[in-house]
Lab assay of single mutants.
Amino acid sequence: MTEYKLVVVGAGGVGKSALTIQLIQNHFVDEYDPTIEDSYRKQVVIDGETCLLDILDTAGQEEYSAMRDQYMRTGEGFLCVFAINNTKSFEDIHHYREQIKRVKDSEDVPMVLVGNKCDLPSRTVDTKQAQDLARSYGIPFIETSAKTRQGVDDAFYTLVREIRKHKEKMSKDGKKKKKKSKTKCVIM
């Protein structure tokens, strides 16, 4: 069974824990209790493949930012979460993405942009803004509501699919490099 290491990042209060708990335990946590770091595991079937999701729910508070490099190193894919009623959390996505790329030393890291709290009427981040940002990053965008469960499975499952595509691409690139290195030079 394939294991996928997913990391949920975003500013404090955007609903990272609520999304994760909704996926794992099928219930909505409405009281806000700032996370330092929590880890969850769940076995699911995605596109006919049974897999184990190892999900790291991270601290959004700035005082825990020193811990970010460590979990970013171990993560295979990242859910970059903002709240649709919090423009600052949307603007912060850029910083999370840049930090992930720096730590992973790669421009090509599996990510999904997630606009959470889409059940709320007080939207300050337009869907088109988020779609445009995701398009500019070359990553999928999904709106979710941890409260109603809308888009929750889709967000995590899409990230797994992005990781699969990335692994497939990397193995193809690896095979191309191996083929090239088999060419021999004969000096007579």
Rank of each mutant, 00 (worst) to 15 (best):
D154H: 08
I187L: 14
D153H: 12
A130S: 07
S136C: 09
F141A: 01
K175E: 15
G138H: 02
V152W: 15
D153M: 14
D126H: 05
V186N: 15
T144L: 06
S145W: 05
R164L: 09
V152N: 10
F156C: 03
K169L: 13
I142W: 02
K172M: 07
R135V: 06
R135W: 03
G151W: 11
K128M: 10
K169W: 06
A155H: 01
T158W: 06
E162V: 01
K172W: 06
V160I: 13
Q150M: 04
V125E: 01
T158C: 09
K182G: 11
D153W: 06
F156M: 09
F156S: 00
K128H: 12
G138Y: 01
R164C: 08
Q150S: 10
R149D: 12
F141S: 02
K180R: 10
T127L: 11
Q131Y: 08
K178T: 11
D132Y: 04
G174R: 06
A155I: 14
H166S: 10
R135A: 13
G151V: 11
A134Q: 02
F156I: 13
R135E: 13
R164P: 00
Q129L: 08
F156T: 02
D153C: 12
V152Q: 11
D132T: 05
K175P: 08
M188A: 15
S171I: 05
K169H: 11
T148Y: 13
M170A: 08
K167A: 04
P140V: 01
M188F: 03
S136H: 14
V152P: 05
F141P: 00
K165H: 07
D132P: 01
K172Q: 14
R135G: 09
I187E: 15
V152G: 07
A134W: 04
D154Q: 12
T144Y: 01
V186M: 02
D126I: 04
T158R: 04
A134N: 05
Q129H: 08
K177Q: 10
D126T: 06
T148P: 12
D173G: 11
D154K: 10
K147L: 10
S136F: 09
L159Y: 00
T158H: 12
K172E: 09
L133H: 04
C185K: 15
S136D: 14
K172S: 10
Q129C: 13
L133A: 05
Y137T: 06
I142Y: 05
T127W: 09
K167E: 04
V160P: 00
C185D: 15
K128G: 11
I142G: 02
E168W: 02
I139C: 08
G151F: 07
L133R: 03
D154M: 08
D154C: 06
K182Y: 07
M170C: 12
K184R: 07
F156W: 07
E168N: 10
K128D: 12
S181H: 09
K178H: 11
S136W: 02
K172P: 14
F156R: 00
Y157Q: 14
M170W: 09
T183L: 03
R149W: 03
R161C: 07
Y157R: 14
K176L: 12
S145R: 05
S181C: 08
Y137R: 02
R164Y: 02
D126G: 07
Y157G: 13
M170N: 07
M188H: 15
Q131P: 03
K165W: 01
G151Y: 09
K178R: 06
K172F: 10
K169E: 14
T158E: 08
Q129M: 13
T158D: 04
T183N: 14
K165A: 08
K175T: 07
A155E: 00
K128A: 11
T158M: 14
K175D: 15
K177I: 11
S136T: 10
G151L: 05
V152S: 08
V125Y: 01
L133M: 12
T183E: 15
G138I: 00
T127A: 10
G174L: 13
Y137S: 05
I139K: 01
A155Q: 01
R161E: 11
E143G: 03
S145G: 15
S181W: 01
L133E: 05
G174E: 13
D173V: 03
D126A: 06
V152C: 10
S145Q: 04
V125P: 01
D126Y: 06
S136G: 09
D154P: 03
I139A: 04
G151D: 09
V160D: 00
Y157P: 05
T127Y: 12
E168S: 04
K167N: 12
I139Q: 01
K167P: 01
D173P: 02
L159S: 00
Q129A: 13
E168H: 08
Y157I: 14
A155W: 01
H166P: 01
I163H: 00
V160M: 07
K178V: 14
T127N: 12
D132N: 09
V125T: 01
T144G: 05
R164F: 06
R164D: 09
K167G: 04
R135H: 11
V160A: 03
D153T: 12
M188N: 14
R149F: 13
K169R: 13
M188G: 15
V152K: 08
V160L: 05
Q150R: 10
L133C: 05
Q150F: 03
A134G: 07
D153F: 11
R135T: 10
K167V: 02
